[in-house]
């Protein structure tokens, strides 16, 4: 069902079925954590299958990004990460590109998350913001569980002009009467 659609330079939009439900069904999550994650409206998700690794991995610095997102409660953000503490592993790719990894967010919060990414980079790399290249994926999930994945690789300063309008356009198509999106705990046979 996937097809690629290049919207703007550096931004690719894909249909995807990797919504909250998809990630909460992962076998490496315990039932307790699965319950905890069902309350999140911004979920940092891992990269799977990198270099034939069996374990899911996160980009270097995810710990700091999660901490930043968790401090944004007042903006309606309830952030979490899709991994058990003991299984958390980081992948350090030594290229001068800021790799933020992948997020799954509810549609109504997608533009807020785009703003937060810009703020995070300004705060973390204040001298580099103007000429930094960044890479991330945001999967925006509608209330009915349908989703689109926005993959961006380009100048950090272009998030506002390139990524945010695309996220907002998609978010505006979504119902506005909730902030959590449609998520339910997966059936046990999903494991």
């Amino acid at each position: 069902m996937e097809h690629n659609n290049r919207v703007e330079s550096g931004l690719i939009v894909e249909d995807t079925d990797e919504n909250f439900h998809h990630w909460l069904a992962k076998a490496y999550l315990s039932p307790a954590l699965r319950t905890q994650l069902s309350g999140a409206n911004v979920l940092i998700v891992p990269r799977e299958g990198y270099a034939d690794l069996e374990m899911p991995v996160f980009p270097n610095g995810t710990e700091e990004l999660l901490s930043f997102l968790k401090s944004q409660n007042e903006r309606g953000i309830s952030a979490d990460i899709c991994i058990e503490d003991k299984d958390y592993r980081e992948l350090t790719l030594h290229v001068d590109l800021i790799i933020l990894g992948a997020f799954v967010v509810t549609s109504i919060l997608a533009p807020v998350v785009a703003d937060l990414i810009g703020e995070y980079i300004k705060r973390r790399w204040p001298k580099k913001f103007e000429d930094s290249e960044i890479k991330f994926e945001i999967t925006v999930v509608k209330e009915d569980g349908s989703a689109k994945k926005f993959l961006y690789e380009g100048p950090a300063k272009d998030i506002e002009a390139v990524v945010k309008p695309a996220l907002k356009a998609f978010a505006d198509q979504a119902p506005r009467d909730h902030t959590r999106g449609s998520r339910q705990l997966p059936d046990s046979n999903d494991e």
Binding site: V57, N60, E63, I81, D85, Y88, R89, E90, L91, H94
Partner: peptide, 24 residues
């Protein structure tokens, strides 16, 4: 040359504690 590392454990340089993603 650029090595890619899979990091299993990191320590905080201030308190020397292993970094925990859920209990920083």
């Amino acid at each position: 040359m650029s090595p890619a590392l899979l990091v299993h454990e990191k320590l905080c340089s201030i308190c020397q504690q292993p970094i925990s993603i859920r209990n920083p």
